[in-house]
Every structure is written in C-alpha cells, then in structure tokens.
Design a protein around this nucleic acid. Sequence first.
DNA 1: TAATACTGGACTATTTTAGTCCAGATTATT
DNA 2: AATAATCTGGACTAAAATAGTCCAGTATTA
Lengths: 139, 139
Amino acid sequence: MEIIRRNTDYGIRALVFMAQKPIGEIFSLSDLAAQIEVPLDFLYKIFRKLAEEGLVTAHRGANGGFSLKKETEKITVKEVVEILQGPLAINQCFLSNKPCSYFSKCFLKKRWRKVQEEVEKILSGLTLEELAKGGKHFV
Amino acid sequence: MEIIRRNTDYGIRALVFMAQKPIGEIFSLSDLAAQIEVPLDFLYKIFRKLAEEGLVTAHRGANGGFSLKKETEKITVKEVVEILQGPLAINQCFLSNKPCSYFSKCFLKKRWRKVQEEVEKILSGLTLEELAKGGKHFV
DNA sequence: TAATACTGGACTATTTTAGTCCAGATTATT
DNA sequence: AATAATCTGGACTAAAATAGTCCAGTATTA
C-alpha cells in the first residue's frame, strides 16, 4: 500500500516543479502535465483543490495557468496529503472521532497515538522547499 | 486513509492480547474474537497468514487454537503489516520494482526514499512486546 | 471572434477492502 | 464410535476507494 497516493504524488511533483522556477511564474496545466507526465484532466482536478486551499492561484483565459500562492517553505507534505487525500491516520481509531466499540477497553490506543505522532512529525517536518532544493533532510 | 488496515489492526490486537498471557498458552479464535471484538471468520483468515509466516502455531481439534510461536519481542509492527497487508511504501515508486515512465527524470525519488526509510524505522523499531508491555517507546 | 485556459460536476472501470460462507480435515472428550 | 470443537482452504461478495475521463460552461487574451 502506498501512503502517498497518485493524486498527491502528482500534486507534489507539480508544486515542486513550479518551486524550481522564479516565484510568481504562471504554468498552464497543459505544459505542466506534459513536463511531469501526468494526465491533464486529472491534474486539473488536483489543482482545483490546491487552489481552493490557497496553495496556488488560478489565472483563467489565454496565457493563464496557475502560480504558486503560498511559499513552498511553508507548505508541508502533510498539508498537501491532507488536502488531496484527506486525513492520514495510523489506523481507523484515529481517523474518525467516533470511537469504535472496542475503544474503551483498548489499551493500544495510547501507543498507536505515539506512532501516529511520529509519522505526522516526519510529514509535517518536510516542506516542499526542501523537496525542491534539498534541505537539511537530505544531506 | 489508514496506514494500518483493519486486518492488521485486528491481527496486532490479537497477538498483543496473547502476549499478555503466559507464553505457550493456546487461544481458540472463538474466545479471542470475542475478547478483542472482531469477526470470527475474518480472524481465521488473518491467523492463517500469521501461521504461514511462523508467528503463531495452529493446534487443531477440540481444545485447539493458536499459540504464539515467535517471541513478541522479535515481532515488529512492520513485519505484521507486511504479512497482512503486503509491502508498505511511501508511494507507487517504491512499491514495485518497475520504475514508472517518469522515473529517470524524477529528482524526487532520492528524497522520497529518505522519507520511506524514516517511516520504516518507526514501524520496524516497534515490537509487539513493547506494544503489550509499554517499553521505551511509551515512557 | 477565436483560441486558450480554468471550473464544476457527472460519470465510470478497476481494484481494494472487509468481510462471509461452506465443505472438509483434525483432535479431544464421552 | 460418535460428537463437538477447532483449524484449513478457497470461493464468493457488497461496498468503498482509486484513478481517472468527459463535457458543457466561463473567463481572458490576442
């Protein structure tokens, strides 16, 4: 199983690609899709959500496209994952607020929470800037 | 999305439950299923794999059941995850050996590998013994 | 006005998930 | 020997998730 699904993977690929060019530059998705080799219509769907959440700005019409809105050093992998594939949890127990029937007896939940926090720390500690440029994570 | 799926969650719940009783004790799945509140037939399916992989031993017939075969301090969460839900990877790229068409150009793969290793480290560093008793991870 | 680009939503094929069901084999007890 | 409890192996399935596709519409530029 993949933790990062196809849509998130594509989204990050696109954002990181954009991050490597001068800030404010506008990319049409037809260009972008060709560059990062993902299906155009799928990329539209992905960018719709990224725009809704304020990561990118859409520019309609000819010569339009998308530009980065949020600084990539402030966008974490965790954020993109949650925008594009919803909440990520270690198990069912931490996904919904409704505890399962076993919840009260479950002596594992405190321990799973610890694991959940460790995984979150990895993903929230990694920014797109670092993915693009290679930061402290990749020395 | 949950990293640990229902079958793995149930499997770990069962194994940890067993780990809290004297070693060698035999548990019938009907008892176990009632104790940890999971569907019996599903638990059978789960234990079949755990037995195949040598984590537990099956004892057939009346008064039969399953006993732990491998010491729980040697069973890691990663191991159970991989037995029950197959390989866990950060993304598609690390799931199969077949690189995707973008692979050669993908400057992210080295970075994803790092993330993958960090996640693996968490899961392989956590044993069922620690889940059962609360070890260094949970102080 | 034509071309380019995003918007919004409906639609869909395939795969995965979370089980269920059942006939059979094995062993312990009576 | 019969019965009951237990695992074995595999087929089956409903529902959800995944990974897209498609299209009619709107906005903008040349």
